[in-house]
Design a protein around this nucleic acid. Structure first.
Lengths: 137, 137, 137, 137
DNA sequence: GTGGTCTAGACCACA
DNA sequence: GTGGTCTAGACCACT
């Protein structure tokens, strides 16, 4: 997968990285057991600070998406069921984002259309056997 | 409607207020033309600073949810169609939140269930005749 | 001429009135010697406070557009040359508004087009003899 | 560029700053990609409060003139075409300022002379190669 | 270093 | 009464 930093985004760099990893997982571009690029390599590739990448990986580890170890770097975990802590915050954020849509005058149909548009990218999971490169340099 | 500040939340106070207003709009608890509580009144009620509430109201005004004026205070606007700028950011945030769910092992069915659970509160718009108080003291 | 208050405008009422009087003068709808509606009448017609209309008239008097007296109310003056004080502030405001246009990417042609569009309404001055009603009720 | 606060102006400080930035953009003194002085630096230079400068920068960001970010401070944007919302308010303000001129007895020739006088400063964009300092200390 | 949030208290403009 | 402006000083998040 390819990482891309938007230098003029309002989102912190570490969150951009975190989000891109999560999206890649959802799309099946990286799968349980796969290794993320090393902190050093990714920092160099993106021309940002080591600490920033480290922070992103720590967050991913803390949220349960990866297992971060000194030896192996970041390994994607196999998550089957979200834990309670995740669900609680997630629901609230979903509620907020849906409220915005309704308050802005969107209908349930509009929203579900966007939902399908987004999730069909996720549904297209690559077959379990295929092991593609994590990072195309 | 009732406002509630979570003092230990990672979300800034002003965003909590903003979100609660938007959710109340989605639920139909406050409707176009209704007045929000005055900045001073809400600040006192929540025991937070006047400027913090002011910031929340300014954000709501800027996002188009309310009209904030020196004369009338904050009045809920009637939004019919979201503009392009809103939709762009909204889609991206929806994409992020959905990928989190998939990456955490949730299925489309799980997600849609939460969707219905949340939106059925919205769909339940109060009948047009009923005029409820904005703020239950 | 007809006055119209925009209740949800960010502009103060007294400025809205002042601007409408000035625009009516520019269009030739009210002319030197004409009387403005009485403060009391206008306040009643617009359903706003006497003080607010008074403030507008005072401002017009102070800026030299009208002569405000207790007996005759507001009488439109015959201005031939703007005084220095007016010109100074006016130039600065014109400079600001033109800067905005250029900074937003407009060209001189764009601006002059708007200029013509606006001034052609002013150019269409009614002939000097005709004395039309100040206020159509 | 040089900022200057008029302490006895009726214009709020934050608007004075905003206007001076916009004028500098129109004159080509600051160009797309250039950085504005940091909020703290400008506040100190002008001997006004940090929050006042902050407000000016936030307004400029909101109006689209600059991009304000935690990382880079204020960066001048490259605006090509004004949006509809801008044009609407701009036209009305132009209309008001032009009617003042006519009501004060100025002619179209007078106005166009001022127009040229102001815009010739804008037209005189500095040659593309020259990179002048943003802030002459 | 940068901007962002929050608090506290003052005074002003508008109606 | 309302919101708007300005000041002053604190702490935080990001790089």
């Amino acid at each position: 997968m390819t990482f891309l930093i938007k230098w003029d985004s309002e989102q912190p760099f570490y969150l951009q990285i975190r989000n891109q990893v999560v999206e890649a997982m959802a799309r099946g571009q990286i799968r349980p057991g796969n290794a993320l690029p090393s902190i050093r390599a990714l920092a160099e590739q993106l021309a940002i600070n080591l600490h920033t990448v480290h922070k992103a990986y720590q967050l991913l580890d803390q949220e349960g998406y990866i297992h971060l170890s000194r030896r192996q770097g970041g390994i994607v975990r196999d998550l089957r069921n979200p834990n309670h802590a995740f669900l609680e915050g997630w629901q609230e954020r979903l509620s907020t984002i849906l409220s915005e849509a309704f308050a802005q005058g969107m209908t349930s149909q509009d929203i579900l259309q966007y939902y399908r548009q987004i999730t069909q990218e996720f549904a297209g999971t690559t077959p379990p056997g295929s092991e593609e490169a994590i990072l195309d340099e």
